[in-house]
Simulated scan of single mutants.
Amino acid sequence: MNTQSELTWLPESGVQLRKAGVQFDAIRVDGEEGRDVADWLARMTGGDPGPIVESATGRRGVYFLVPVGSTSHRAWPDNVTRFTAGPSRVSYIPVPALNGLTWPLSWRYRPTTPGHLVHTRLLCTALHSQE
């Protein structure tokens, strides 16, 4: 695992919002389905699916951090929420620090190296196979 300084988008403590379209976009899938898809991706990628954040409250959303612009021009299932940026559209993605108090957010799968994100096509395929 690289140091915190190499992953400049991570907050040093707590939770911060990151604007979609800068370092990454995100796909949110709520509930157990999101957790199941995250674990499936981990199995398919040898345990390193890319950064995935989960929430312990509300809809219990799971946020898959994907490359900027990679969610467009894809048919996503109805239960997916896209966090992207574009004309007249701004989205913010919650990101917890690697350590310390970040509740209700935590890393289901921690970021490992700069630029390594969830593979969007693999995620889309996994979500369609869950339908």
Rank of each mutant, 00 (worst) to 15 (best):
M44H: 09
V15S: 07
K19R: 14
L17P: 00
P11M: 03
G14M: 05
L127E: 06
R59I: 02
A85H: 13
S72I: 10
V22G: 05
P87V: 15
V37E: 03
T57Y: 08
S88Q: 15
T112R: 15
D78K: 06
M44W: 13
P114R: 02
R43Q: 14
E12P: 04
R35H: 06
T112M: 11
S91W: 06
T8M: 08
T120K: 01
E33Q: 10
V53T: 06
R59K: 10
G34R: 00
M1F: 08
L98Q: 09
L41D: 02
A85W: 08
K19A: 10
T8A: 09
R60P: 01
E131I: 10
L101I: 11
Q4S: 08
V95G: 05
E131K: 14
L123T: 00
L117H: 04
P114L: 02
P94K: 10
G69Q: 01
D48P: 02
S106F: 13
Q130L: 10
G58M: 03
V90T: 14
M1W: 11
R82S: 08
D30Y: 02
V15Y: 06
E33P: 03
G86T: 06
D39M: 14
E131T: 14
G46D: 12
R35C: 11
R60H: 14
V22P: 04
L98T: 02
N79H: 15
L101H: 12
P77Y: 06
P104Q: 01
T8E: 06
R82K: 11
L127W: 00
Y63K: 01
W40A: 12
A75E: 13
G50C: 05
L41R: 08
W9Q: 01
V37K: 06
A20L: 10
S72H: 14
H119M: 07
W40V: 12
D25E: 07
I52R: 00
S55C: 15
T3A: 14
S72P: 04
P96G: 08
S91Y: 03
G115F: 08
L105T: 02
H116C: 09
W76E: 02
N99K: 12
P49Y: 14
F83H: 13
V66M: 01
R121S: 12
T81V: 06
T8V: 12
A75T: 03
N79Q: 15
L10N: 05
T45K: 07
D36P: 07
A26T: 04
D48E: 15
V15Q: 03
G58T: 09
Y63I: 03
V62I: 08
Y92G: 10
Y109R: 09
E131L: 13
A26D: 04
S88K: 15
D78I: 00
L17D: 01
Y92Q: 12
A126R: 10
L98P: 06
S13L: 13
L7D: 05
P111C: 05
G58P: 11
T3H: 13
S13C: 07
P111L: 11
N79F: 15
L105K: 04
A38C: 00
R74E: 00
S55N: 10
L127S: 10
P87C: 09
E32M: 07
